[in-house]
Every structure is written in C-alpha cells, then in structure tokens.
C-alpha cells in the first residue's frame, strides 16, 4: 500500500505547484511533462507490462484527438461528453488492431510494424476526408470556460494531473492484481502462461484496449490545450516516439518509469534548446542518440538503475 500512498503524495505535491510557481513558462513545462508521462504510461501498459512493443501508438492518440475535435466542431458536443467518447473510440481502435494481430500471434517486430502501418493508414485517411478537415486540420474555437474543458494554465495543470493520476492508478493496479500477473507472465513466456491456465489472447486484448483508451485521453488533452490538430500532428511518428521514449528512458514495466522518463526528457529538451538553439530536428537527433545509449547500457531505464543501487 506504500506505493499507492506515493501516488497520493505525488498528486498533492503537483497540486501545490500553482501556489508556488508564477512563471507561465515553467507551468507549461510541467504540463508538457505530465502530458508526456501520460503518453509514456499508455505505451508502458502494453509495451512494458505486456512486452508488446508498439511503434504506432499515434494511432490511438490521433483517434482520441480527432474524435475530440470532430465531435465538438462538427457535431457541437460538449467537451466533457466528447472526452469519454474519444477514449472509447481509442479503446475500440486498440481492440481492432489487437484482434487482428493477436489472432495470428504477431509479436516482436511484426506487431511493431502492424501498429506503425495502422498509424500511417489513419494519417492518410485523416488527410483525405472532409469531416477531419483533410490536410488543413481542425481548429477548436477558443471559448475559455471550465464547462468547455478550456482553462488557464493552472486549470490545465489540474486536468492533466488528474488524467495522469488515473493512468498511474491503472499501472499500480496492473502491478498488484491477478490481471497484471497474467500480463507479465504472457510477456515473459506465452507458452508457460497458457499451460498455467492464462487466456493469452484475452489478456493481450485487455492490455491494448486500456493502452488505446489512455493514449486517446492524451490526444483529447492535446486538442483541448492547443486547440488544433492536423493529420501529421495526430498520426505522425513523433507522438509514437514521444510515448515510447518516456517509457524506455524511465524504465519499462515499472509504475513510475514513464513519469521519470518524461521529466528527464523534458530537462534534456530544455538543455539542448539552450545549448544548440532551435535548429530544426536537433531534438530528434538527441532523442535518437539517447535511445541507442539507453537500450544498450540501461535496458531497465532510470528506475531500473535506481533499484539496482538500492540492493
């Protein structure tokens, strides 16, 4: 139960931030960190606990983002109603991709390629259809009010904090439940798991649906916070990379890994910007180098390193 209390303490600490921090720049940095941690956790649930590495988490992200924008702009839905719908759609896309891939036992790089392909297909579709605004994208009009899920910086901090806490609780539950034990068993050895009575297909399906819902939640937040989405932002590779980077740098298969990774990457991003300026693509080069170094020398991430010291 100590680990559950840790989530509470973390929530409390972040909730106190607006009372102490005045700088909009710093608040924005914290919001973006929490947001990246949410994406990372959505990746971690499938990739970290389930061993199913996705290269196309953007497909869930974009589904959530577009659902949020289309339902509000084209159908006049209230944002608070659109949010659960966006999450359900993200979960449904997860279920669809999962049913296709897991039915045929796709694992490893094959599964990664399927997710990548789906993200790309969705990007092309969003680029084509009129109701998604095609290549121009969709603009969500600015009407700041809690009723529209549009806030100032402080309000958005609380919004993303509550989303992230929900994701942390899901991860905590996975770490301490029968479902989580089954999911990790499937990750470590599918044959053994099924010999011990684990319904491998069902366990994987649940994991990808949960990951899809959380990632869609991240997409919905993005639209609310920045008021704009286009096919490349929604389904491009950079969101997928952002999600897996946070999890891998922080430590996959751990409850706090994605948050730690997101914070480390945020700091790294600020550093590179200060040292090398805003040269386009420089952050991607740094990301690539960090990813290679991490996978080679710290496969358990920062959290893995910390637990090794403790022993």
């Amino acid at each position: 139960m100590r680990s559950l209390a840790a989530i509470g303490v973390f929530a409390l600490l972040i909730a106190l931030v607006p009372a102490m921090v005045d700088s909009g720049y710093l608040l924005n940095a914290i919001i973006m960190t929490l947001y990246a941690a949410l994406l990372g956790q959505a990746w971690n649930i499938l990739g970290g606990f389930g061993g199913l590495f996705s290269f196309g988490h953007a497909v869930f992200f974009g589904t959530g983002a577009y659902a949020m924008a289309v339902l509000q702009v084209n159908f006049g839905w209230n944002a608070w109603v659109a949010l659960p719908a966006a999450m359900v759609l993200g979960g449904a896309v997860g279920g669809f991709i999962g049913a296709l891939s897991f039915r045929y036992g796709l694992r490893g790089s094959y599964f990664a390629l399927v997710t990548l392909a789906f993200a790309e297909v969705f990007r092309v579709l969003a680029n084509t259809f009129q109701f998604t605004g095609a290549g121009v994208g969709l603009m969500v009009p600015l009407k700041e009010s809690a009723l529209n899920m549009q806030f100032g910086k402080t309000g958005f901090l609380y919004l993303i904090l509550s989303f992230l806490i929900a994701a942390q609780l899901v991860a905590w539950w996975i770490r301490h439940s029968r479902f989580g034990a089954w999911l990790q068993a499937v990750r470590d050895n599918e044959e053994s798991a099924s010999a011990l009575g684990v319904d491998v297909f069902r366990v994987k399906m649940l994991a990808i649906v949960m990951a899809g819902m959380l990632m869609a939640c991240g997409g919905a937040f993005y639209v609310q916070y920045l008021h704009y989405i286009d096919p490349h932002l929604a389904f491009g590779a950079s969101v997928s990379v952002q999600a897996l980077m946070a999890a891998i740098v922080g430590g996959i298969g751990s409850v706090w890994g994605p948050l730690v990774g997101a914070a480390a990457l945020q700091l790294l991003g600020e550093l590179t910007r200060n040292l090398m300026g805003d040269a386009p693509g420089i952050n991607l080069i740094v990301y690539g180098v960090v990813l290679v170094l991490m996978v080679n020398f710290m496969p358990r991430g920062i959290v893995g390193l910390a637990t090794r010291w403790k022993r």
């Binding site: 301490h176 044959e191 010999a195």
Partner: peptide, 29 residues
C-alpha cells in the same frame, strides 16, 4: 503440464512465478 525444457518467467522472482499458477483459482494477489 510441465515442460521438458523448463520455461520460467525469467524476469520474475520464484514467488511471482509460482503465484501465476496459483492465480488460476485465486483472484486476490
């Protein structure tokens, strides 16, 4: 069944390994 070529959940502890089997009939962690 057991396997001739043993297939443990390598990353997990002995206790966690056995618990996967125990979970068949027991929901509580």
């Amino acid at each position: 069944r057991t396997f001739q070529l043993v297939q443990p959940f390598a990353a997990q502890t002995v206790r966690e390994n056995i618990a996967v089997g125990a979970h068949l009939g027991i929901a509580s962690r």
